[in-house]
């Protein structure tokens, strides 16, 4: 059985800077995958590439992206739009800016529901465009209220508000309602809670994950917060310098990291700290690539690096439950 999302060997350049350097990612249907990395690790580029939402100056030099078997990067425009509209949903960092500032929230939702209704009549395979609102009457206003209710926005004033009148948390829930209105098969969330305070953050995450579970929607959640991701997701993929250096079950990646970078990341997380033990920041800075990395991009910061690490690109190896990009993965596993 093939996965819902398959990213293989994806390389993306912005001018002379390389954002993705051969990234691989697999997401099965109904699965929640957290993609973790520092800023600049390429996770946002990876997220955008899933919907071919890369800015114009981005050049894909190699690799493929498949969603439900469809080659996203090679689709003609109409098919691409259909894919985005029916199978994919996106939620972005800045919630208020992600909503049209000149339109009331309810009207934005109506616009999406109507467009989706049109597509629905043209026929969709597998999914019912009604997406959980079958059998209810009451017209479009009731639909709006229903979709806002799904993200726990029950106050009727929300529908008539403009985005700038909403709080960040409310706006993000509206954005989630918009993205989930078409009951997509895969929701890509790019740090949707980065600008929210911690209490609101939890509420928004609850909404996203429970709604996705209800709908059977897979989630790709891009974040820099490894422990938070590990708590909510089935699997975790750790990115470094444009590659996924380790992926596997969330608890394993957090609890028994194999790649030295993952291990360092896990140690540097405040939530994982044992009281009395100093937090260890990852020494050095992440590199910015201008072309393919010659060896392992983490080698300059890696305490275990040896000669071939700087000259030979690591290939994925299976260590226990994890896929790891490290020449010394097997030895390090023993050490761990």
């Amino acid at each position: 059985m093939s996965a819902l999302l398959e990213v293989d060997g994806l390389e993306v350049d912005y001018g002379t800077a390389r954002a993705l350097d051969g990234a691989d990612l697999r997401v099965a249907a109904g699965e929640a995958v957290g993609v973790v990395g520092e800023s600049g690790s390429g996770k946002s580029t990876l997220g955008a590439a899933i919907g071919r939402l890369l800015p114009r100056q981005a050049v894909v030099t190699a690799g493929t992206v498949r969603v439900a078997g469809e080659p996203v990067l090679d689709l003609p425009p109409a098919a691409l739009r259909r894919l985005r509209g029916q199978r994919l949903g996106f939620v972005f960092q800045d919630p208020i800016a992600s909503l049209d500032p000149t339109m009331r929230v309810g009207n934005q939702l109506k616009l999406v529901l109507r467009a989706q209704g049109r597509e629905g009549r043209e026929g969709r395979d597998g999914h019912d465009s009604g997406g959980g609102r079958g059998g209810r009457g009451g017209g479009i206003n009731a639909d709006v209220a229903f979709h806002l209710g799904r993200v726990k926005l029950d106050d009727p004033r929300v529908a008539t508000a403009y985005p700038h009148q909403l709080s960040g948390g409310m706006a993000q829930r509206v954005a989630i309602a918009l993205a989930m209105a078409a009951s997509p098969e895969l929701l890509v969330a790019d740090e949707p809670t980065a600008s929210l305070d911690s209490q609101v953050r939890e509420e928004v995450l609850n909404v996203v994950f429970s709604l996705a579970r209800e709908e059977g929607t897979s989630i790709v959640w891009l974040s820099h917060d490894l422990p938070a991701v590990a708590r909510r997701c089935d699997r975790v993929a750790v990115m470094y310098a444009g590659r996924v250096v380790e992926s596997g079950p969330a608890t394993e990646v957090l609890g028994n990291p194999v790649h030295p970078y993952t291990a360092a990341l896990a140690r540097s997380a405040p939530a994982a700290a044992t009281p009395g033990v100093r937090l260890e920041p990852v020494p050095g800075r992440p590199p910015v690539l201008t072309g393919p990395s010659a060896g392992c991009a983490f080698a300059p910061r890696c305490p275990f690096a040896e000669d071939r690490c700087t000259t030979e690109r690591p290939e994925p190896v299976r260590v226990g439950t994890q896929d790891v990009l490290c020449h010394r993965a097997a030895e390090l596993e023993v050490i761990a």
């Binding site: 912005y14 001018g15 800077a17 100056q57």
Partner: peptide, 20 residues
């Protein structure tokens, strides 16, 4: 120096596109 240089390159890349 590398980090500085790249930070600048990145900023212009994000602002000016392929212009570099």
């Amino acid at each position: 120096t590398r980090v500085k240089g790249t930070a600048r390159a990145k900023r212009t890349a994000s602002v000016k596109g392929t212009a570099g």
